[in-house]
Amino acid sequence: MIVAEQKPFAEIAGFVADCNKILVAGCLGCVAVCLAGGEKETEILAAALRMHRRLQGKPLETVTYTATRQCDPEYVDAMADLVKDVDAVVSLACGVGVQYIAERYPDKWVVPALNTRFAGGSVAQGVWEERCGLCGECILHKTGGICPIIRCSKSLLNGPCGGSQYGKCEISKDVPCAWQLIYDRMKALGRLEWLLEYQPPKDWSKSRDGGPRKAVREDATI
């Protein structure tokens, strides 16, 4: 899923400082799972903004709505009535949701309440870690199911750099070296010889470097 984190409260409050009425829009997709922008977080943010503004003597009216997904036009359409008479929409979705609302309501001021961080998963209650670099050409079959593109700080494809020591990455003792993990796993699987094979330069055009990407499933289009 996409993992996001709420922006500092003061930053969000600043985005809507000149508004009198706002729609605070949550999303029940990934950001609800990572506790950043679900129904609960949406209501907390709305209440906090209202209280903050009341203390400033400039009361703010809030409307809340939590979409099933903000990354699907039909669910963004569903908030049309609420969007109509607000000065701004504060979206608690990932960057996709914010853009979907902005696209659907071109004359509306739409601001992000979250920082979209990474594609990852939960490793313990309340803890999430990055796992996928969205590079567009998966190589996990060559690396024992551990992604060096995103889990190695330098995206190395041919083994660990000289900064890998005691299983940790040179950037921090809290970051495991992806290549140590790959090595250990390939060793356990009896496939170490795979790591001797030279991996040629990656085709980054399939990643974000190739410009905005698009996926089409012909059979699914109408």
Binding site: P8, F9, A10, I44, A48, H52, Q56
Partner: peptide, 8 residues
């Protein structure tokens, strides 16, 4: 902490 942020 949130109450601090809010100003209360």
């Amino acid at each position: 902490k949130l109450l601090d942020d809010i100003g209360l």
